[in-house]
């Protein structure tokens, strides 16, 4: 019996990634058989391009969810940072400076979320639900609801330029994912991110500035969302105040699908990246097979539900989640 449970736990740690890898592989093979167009580089470039944006935002979200929190405002931050960059560039600010300002805007919103959540001990869901609306409102007020378009080429290059066979968003996504994995697995910040989700009180009693770390994590999520905003704006050459709606749900879905525990304490950037790819491949595949987009929405929703069900069943056997099984004693 003990052996069986121990096996279940070993299974648990790599479960999501193995399962995700298999599903991804099977999906790719099936789609490749179903459509000759699927396996072309042009199509894959398209998939990677779409997934890149999602990876950038989902990495920040992974950190937040690892603390047991959630950030619903990332979609709105995407819009706000794009709008800030656009306004700055139209005011004659240099591209670098405009990008910097846009990302600072995202960081400030993230910091605001973090302050409210850590200092006032408010519920992350409610706080970020509020900032989601506030930030969207600000983006609409700044633009008066009208999209801003037409930017210098150096800026649009960030969204649709070419670096060999790849483009800047893909490289950004790779960089952010690698950096995120390094931070989550190898640094104090990463350790404390997981400890915050596992047992915040234990972290506090160990003398760690737990509120500061929480603040940093929400700020990181704001920054990655702002980088997402930069990519969207540059790609479309338009800053759209309504851009990025539902991005938060896509990001949360990818994080959960990637095996990060919604209750915190456990998470993986690798899983998040794989989930982003899987969602990207599925969307693309359904489009190629000319399945109407309503069904796409349905299919992706069902996949996310299945992922959550699997993850919950798994967690019943994981330590620190109510139904704890103590081995060996």
């Amino acid at each position: 019996m003990k052996q069986y449970k121990r096996f279940l736990m070993m299974w648990d740690q790599t479960f999501s990634q193995i399962l995700l890898g298999l599903v991804l592989l099977i999906t790719v093979i099936l789609l490749g058989l179903a459509s000759p167009f699927f396996m072309t580089w042009d199509n894959w470039r398209n998939i990677l391009d779409q997934s890149a944006l999602q990876v950038i935002i989902a990495v920040g979200m992974t950190f937040v969810i690892c603390t047991g929190g959630i950030d619903l405002s990332v979609g709105s931050i995407t819009a706000l940072s794009g709008v800030c960059m656009a306004v700055a560039m139209h005011a004659g600010v240099s591209v670098e400076m405009a990008v910097f300002l846009g990302i600072i805007a995202g960081a400030i919103v993230g910091m605001g979320n973090g302050l409210l959540i850590s200092r006032l001990n408010l519920n992350p869901f409610i706080v970020t639900l509020g900032t989601m609306a506030v930030v969207r409102g600000v983006a609409l007020i700044i633009t008066k609801g009208i999209p801003i378009y037409g930017f210098p080429r150096e800026f649009t290059w960030l969204g649709n330029g070419h670096i060999g066979p790849l483009n800047p968003p893909m490289l950004m996504a790779v960089f952010i994912a690698l950096l995120g994995a390094l931070v989550l697995n190898q640094t104090k910040l990463g350790n404390y991110t997981l400890a915050l989700g596992g047992n915040e009180e234990a972290l506090r009693r160990s003398g760690v500035a737990h509120k500061l770390y929480k603040l940093i994590i929400y700020t990181i999520c704001g920054i990655t969302a702002a980088m997402g905003g930069m990519v969207v704006t540059a790609r479309l050459n338009t800053a759209e105040p309504l851009a990025g709606s539902m991005f938060e749900l896509d990001a949360i879905a990818a994080v959960v699908l990637g095996g990060t525990d919604m209750k915190g304490g456990r998470g993986s950037i690798t899983g998040t990246v794989m989930a982003c790819l899987l969602l990207g491949v599925l969307r693309n595949g359904l489009t190629i097979l000319s399945i109407p987009s309503y069904y796409q929405q349905l299919a992706i929703g069902i996949i996310i539900l299945v992922a959550i069900i699997i993850s919950e069943l798994r967690l019943k056997n994981a330590p620190g989640h109510g139904n704890t099984i103590y081995l060996g004693g």
Binding site: L194, A195, G197, N199, E201, S206, G265, T324
Partner: peptide, 9 residues
């Protein structure tokens, strides 16, 4: 008394 351990680490 509650040991203040992070169970998932």
């Amino acid at each position: 008394q509650d040991l203040a351990l992070v169970d998932c680490r």
